[in-house]
Design a protein around this nucleic acid. Structure first.
Lengths: 160, 160
DNA sequence: AAAAACCGTTATTAGATGTAACGATCCACC
DNA sequence: GGTGGATCGTTACATCTAATAACGGTTTTT
């Protein structure tokens, strides 16, 4: 094995490594606010699609409905989200962001910007734009849903 | 909220998203070989540092020694790794790759290359080099150990 | 009107992760 | 040279998470 002249050596690993780091740091920054990453995702989707059902939310986020129950309980307990009875379907809830929920989402957005600034400290503005463009192309080419995080369920531990 | 003219919008999220995707796909590719990502990492480190102890391995990989026990049991059960008694310390093992282990590691390397080719399909060779360069700079700037995966322990679910 | 499909919830199962404790051994120090 | 503390691999445990299946209540279909 020569001295690995391939300038893209380990690229897939680097993506995994940096991605996991970004996720972990983001979760750390969210913790003092009393949030987990999943909470932030829920708030964002509910803001963009007011009045949707838990089932629709689960589908949009790739989360099992049974998992949403507890997650929404936590958010609702903070008064950030409302479970109103759906006028069209008495089985379903219609989820709405409260005013406090909008504030919280804004705080999350601020945290998110700080996080990104920290993660990207090693790159110029131009490079950040290039990087974002490439990543967006990967998302599209790989068939990932824009804005939907694969989630990290069971996936083993360290890589090669 | 304007139409988000920031070309780097959501960059940190994109990194998390693509990274998680890369990890998940890599794990999928490894599964038919009977490996988990952690196994691949162990094989690689043991090859590069023949004769090290489990404790040293754990430190190099950021894995708790108690977790290594089962992991190494699995690899040893396939005859890919040997636990020899350390000549210098009767408490410790000295880990060695067997010939079969070297073959397995090469198979993992091949799988890794296929994986990377798939993930990077949307980018030119030049872009891949640029991307790798930027990611390596992030790794350095963020104080990550080169080649050490943060691991995905508990980290919640979906992001914002 | 009856059967099938659907919503949110709960219970259960299964898996993984970090902490703590154990016997055996090594090392430092008196 | 012996004693106490630290270290190595292991086991046991407590915690936590996530997916599956089943439930009551409701809607839709036929």
């Amino acid at each position: 094995m020569p001295s690995s002249p391939d300038p893209a050596a380990g690229l897939a690993f680097l993506l995994s490594q940096v991605g996991a780091h970004s996720s972990a740091r983001f979760a750390e920054r969210l913790e003092p606010l009393g949030f987990k990453p999943a909470h932030a995702g829920i708030l964002r989707v509910v803001r963009d699609a007011d009045g949707l059902s838990q089932q629709a939310l689960g589908e949009a986020l790739g989360v099992f409905p049974s998992r949403l129950v507890g997650l929404i309980d936590e958010i609702e307990g903070k008064g950030l989200i409302e479970r109103r009875n759906s006028p069209a379907d008495r089985r379903a809830y219609a989820l709405y962001l409260t005013a406090a929920g909008r504030d919280a989402l804004q705080a999350v957005g601020e945290t998110s910007r700080e996080h990104q600034a920290s993660i990207c400290a090693a790159m110029s503005d131009e490079e950040r734009a290039q990087l974002a463009d490439m990543l967006r192309r990967i998302v599209a080419e790989q068939g990932l849903a824009a804005g939907v995080h694969p989630g990290f369920g069971r996936m083993g531990g360290e890589p090669m």
